[in-house]
Amino acid sequence: MKKITRRQALGTAAGAATALGLTALVMWDSAEPSPAPGPKAHPGVDASGLSIPAKGIDEVFEGRRIQISLAKGGGGHEGHGLPAWPTIKIDGNELHIMRNADGTWVSVVNHYETFPDPLAAARAAVRTLQGGHLAPFAPEGAAQ
């Protein structure tokens, strides 16, 4: 009977480990993604960030007034497949936001940081502004 060498045993073990790792990776990649755990959303905002009460959200955060309402269509967001889009105002000036493919949100104030919902994005903008005011934002082609 032929004995297996140490080199052959290590090669077989490495091959088996690689095959198991690749199998696990393929299975993990094809699985349905589960919602990422994160901070609990405001009672008026669900995990997608689009379920805002009909009366909207109106709160004072760190001395600044945050108002969130749903704009029906308009706002340049037609064709996104959304029936409405959140409109955020901080002390009466609009904070422009964008939804990422993974469901998170960014704003023009915190463009490199993501947030679970529009309210969290608005609160972060208030913190970042540190008492400063939002500058009016004119869409492209608008008269200045």
Rank of each mutant, 00 (worst) to 15 (best):
A138K: 10
Y112H: 11
D46L: 01
D29V: 15
H133D: 14
I68D: 00
G131A: 06
G73D: 12
A138Q: 15
A121N: 02
E32W: 06
Q67K: 14
I52Q: 01
G103A: 03
W28E: 13
L25W: 08
A14N: 13
A143K: 13
L129R: 05
R123D: 05
D46E: 01
L50V: 07
M1W: 11
G21C: 06
A122Q: 03
F61V: 06
P35K: 10
A125R: 04
G49Q: 00
R123P: 00
A138I: 15
H42Y: 07
G81C: 02
V109P: 01
A54I: 11
E78V: 09
G92K: 04
L70M: 09
D117K: 01
T114D: 05
S69F: 06
E140A: 15
R127K: 10
E78P: 07
V26E: 13
S107W: 00
L95R: 00
H96V: 09
P136Y: 05
G92Y: 05
D117R: 02
Q8Y: 03
E32M: 09
Q130S: 15
L82S: 02
F61G: 01
I88D: 00
A84W: 10
H80C: 10
R65T: 04
A16G: 07
G21R: 04
I90Y: 04
G44T: 06
K2R: 14
A54L: 12
A54M: 08
P86C: 03
G11E: 13
A31H: 11
A17M: 08
L20I: 15
N93S: 14
G15F: 05
F115G: 02
I52W: 02
P116Q: 07
S51D: 13
P43L: 05
Y112I: 11
R99L: 08
M1I: 15
G141D: 06
N93Q: 14
L129N: 03
I57E: 00
P39I: 08
G103P: 03
P43S: 04
E94Y: 05
P39W: 02
G103T: 02
Q130H: 10
H111F: 14
A13C: 07
N110S: 08
G44S: 11
V126K: 01
L82P: 01
L25A: 14
P86V: 02
P86W: 01
S48T: 12
A124N: 05
A31K: 11
R99I: 10
R65W: 05
V109F: 03
R123G: 02
N100A: 11
E140G: 13
T87F: 07
S51P: 04
G131W: 05
K40E: 11
N93G: 14
T23D: 07
A9V: 14
K40D: 11
R127V: 09
I66N: 00
N100D: 08
H111E: 14
H42T: 04
R99K: 11
D91R: 05
R99D: 02
V109I: 12
I66L: 09
A16S: 14
N100T: 12
I88M: 04
S51V: 08
G81T: 04
T104D: 00
E113K: 12
G56E: 04
K89F: 05
E113I: 13
E59Q: 10
A36V: 15
S69W: 10
T128W: 07
F115S: 01
P118T: 00
G15T: 12
V108E: 14
G76S: 09
A142L: 07
H42W: 10
I68H: 01
P39R: 10
